[in-house]
Design a protein around this nucleic acid. Structure first.
Lengths: 136, 136
DNA sequence: TATGCGTGGTTCCCAATAGTAACCACGCTA
DNA sequence: TAGCGTGGTTACTATTGGGAACCACGCATA
């Protein structure tokens, strides 16, 4: 609560057209981020950024993911052209999952996000604790 | 399907320790991204990056969001210390929502992601169409 | 007077999605 | 012949996302 009421418009003086980029068109952004923001997709892309890996190896590497969720996740990434799937007809079958060039370009951003998350982890945790203390 | 079976390990020769950063610690990354990846959170942060805005204004600005989802989204962002909420006891009440410094630092990354989404929208759409054509 | 508008929410409820457990076939090995 | 490792699929359930409707308040308009 605050007693003063200097208008919001006043606060915004000169702030406009500061961050124009990235907001036009809303829809595509949302549409893409539905996949990008996905927990497992992020984990899979981060892992595949390190090395080409087959299904079972990914299953062991990505902590906590289930077999089905890995299948679903990889299918989604493949559908979006971010992951390339190479099936070798060996016995037992071998599937090599790797990032496509598009996937690699995204990896850069995801890595940046991961770094941000690690850098601000403490701050976010503190903010949450503080918020929860103040409210129920 | 491919006949050849040059091993995956061979394919990975020298690839390791290329993208080390961003993978250690998995958990915090996932934890943070749960919020970052959220559709509405991203839209709200992008919008608040442009200007401090009150509830109703955001409701109109963020296309397609419902009153409840905006409330939920803003609460989450506030809890994480990304959005600052200023309540003025005017009549009718005025609530000024703005990004905190932490929120601003995240905005940079989100803007980059949004730009990526716009740049690769066509490619992703094409990949999806191609995938759907090949499979059922 | 009552009907509507703008403020910023909350509560109820349902549909979609995330995610688990169990099953499949195949061949090799102990 | 029982188990393991390949890469899945199917059936089911828990959790969440999200819309519609409601709240109080004061001001205006008809």
């Amino acid at each position: 609560m605050k007693a003063t009421t200097r208008g919001i418009d006043e606060m915004n003086a000169g702030v406009d057209n500061c961050v124009e980029a990235g907001y036009r068109g809303a829809f595509p952004v949302r549409n893409i981020l539905d996949r990008v923001g996905n927990k497992w997709s992020v984990m899979a892309v981060l892992r595949l950024g390190r090395r080409t890996e087959r299904f079972r190896a990914l299953l062991r590497a990505v902590d906590g993911i289930s077999q089905r969720m890995l299948t679903v996740t990889l299918r989604g990434l493949e559908r979006d052209g971010l992951v390339h799937r190479d099936v070798f007809d060996t016995l037992p079958p071998t599937v090599a999952n790797s990032l496509t060039p598009t996937g690699l370009s995204l990896l850069t951003l995801i890595t940046a996000l991961a770094d941000w998350a690690m850098q601000h982890e403490a701050a976010v945790k503190a903010a949450r604790a503080e918020y929860d203390r103040r409210n129920g």
